[in-house]
Design a protein around this nucleic acid. Sequence first.
DNA 1: TGAATAATTGAACAGTTATTCAACTATTCA
DNA 2: TGAATAGTTGAATAACTGTTCAATTATTCA
Lengths: 99, 99
Amino acid sequence: MNENCREEEYLELAELFKIFGDGTRVRILNALKHREMCVCDIADEVGMNKSAVSHQLKSLKMANMVKSRRDGQNIYYSLSDTHVEEIINIGLEHIREDR
Amino acid sequence: MNENCREEEYLELAELFKIFGDGTRVRILNALKHREMCVCDIADEVGMNKSAVSHQLKSLKMANMVKSRRDGQNIYYSLSDTHVEEIINIGLEHIREDR
DNA sequence: TGAATAATTGAACAGTTATTCAACTATTCA
DNA sequence: TGAATAGTTGAATAACTGTTCAATTATTCA
């Protein structure tokens, strides 16, 4: 897994990382590491209104990073695969090392 | 390495990933995977002028992702640690899996 | 010294993006 | 049915970001 990107993958890769490049989204993803959560709970945890969170969840879903299921009035979000956690954890290693 | 972020780390983490969230920067990092390169060569490889590349290298350096050494008129850049490659490679796995 | 090459810098512009607000849809339950 | 709760949507705004251009610094070498 040490090869170069194919030419058309650069932009895709950048699009992927762009998603992680926002404090609100990182906090949402981090909150979802341990349990699925509905929009209200996420909004409480990250301290933003439901609309802002919903917009960001839409980005995260289009990027295949979260999945959702409806249960009555609530829509529960969770991480869609393990890469999301891996990427965040390696990022944490990187910034913690530079101290 | 499965813990949550400490509160003040969210923004740092987002700042880190923001760096990867640009096609030009990803291409630069990818080019540097295999060898150190001077600004001119990088500019040729990514098809941009030296100024644009220099601006991006500055961001990459401030984010501790590349290091540089001068040799005469040339300044050679290389990756500063292995996390950079790891992050890119996991990103590639993620996007290749979704096909 | 002075011309040539390599790289950096700062300002300006255009394009992108996150948040807010108000309006809307969907579901529950009395 | 209708009120209440949960979530989404689109438009508008403000802030941010990448690239270009022109000017500048640093180094080499004749």
